[in-house]
Amino acid sequence: MDIDWDLVASSFWPLVQGGIRGTIPLSLASFFLGLVLALIVALMRLSGNKVISAIARGYVSVIRGTPLLVQLFVIFYGLPSIGVVIDPWPSAIIAFSLNVGGYAAEVIRAAILSVPKGQWEAGHTIGMSPVTTLRRIILPQAARVSVPPLSNTFISLVKDTSLASLILVTELFRQAQEIAAFSQEFMVLYVEAAVIYWVFCLILSSGQSQLEKRLDRYVAH
């Protein structure tokens, strides 16, 4: 097979632009909102209240037990039939945030539980309320523990945003599809898109190890 290198070169920048304008902001926004949601859900699960904790458990179960693509379609193609029409971008951000929220909630919950009970007691003895202890003592330690699993969640999210192409969001993969449809060079474009995703993820992985190393200094081994 002859590779059309001119096409590779001329499509490279539009694909990267799709990444910069689509994939990256979509990932960042969804991850940030998803983390906030995850923290709330994790705390709901840890709260002593049975009802609140059951709601959180149900949410996590639904998110983890259904395909992301189906969640995306329910929001973008399903909701309009009950009168709720949401644009592609907000739909994508909502779906991905809810998804991250479900997965990261379990990570954060486990991380909070991994902090020794003595840390809560030390917070108590110096006069802190449970909320202050959580904020100043427990969460910083839990954050360190959750960096590796949350980085994995983020890397998965970056790849999963390619699904947004199916609800008309112009991101990296949709860009590739459009150029491929036009040039009929499917192999070239899809492999090129794959390589760009891969490079993004390599960069993120190395960022993750840097972050872990930096946070490591403060923690006992």
């Binding site: 020794p116 003595g118 108590h124 003895t125 110096i126 006069g127 330690q141 403060y218 006992a220």
Partner: peptide, 30 residues
């Protein structure tokens, strides 16, 4: 609780804070 302060068998220092930060946490934050 505010009348007493506990010294724990296993210290229970805050590992993410320096020695000084451990000590001033109560006086400053609480």
């Amino acid at each position: 609780r505010d009348q007493s302060a506990m010294v724990f068998q296993h210290y229970n220092l805050f590992p993410h804070k320096t020695v000084l930060e451990n000590v001033i946490e109560g006086p400053v934050q609480v």
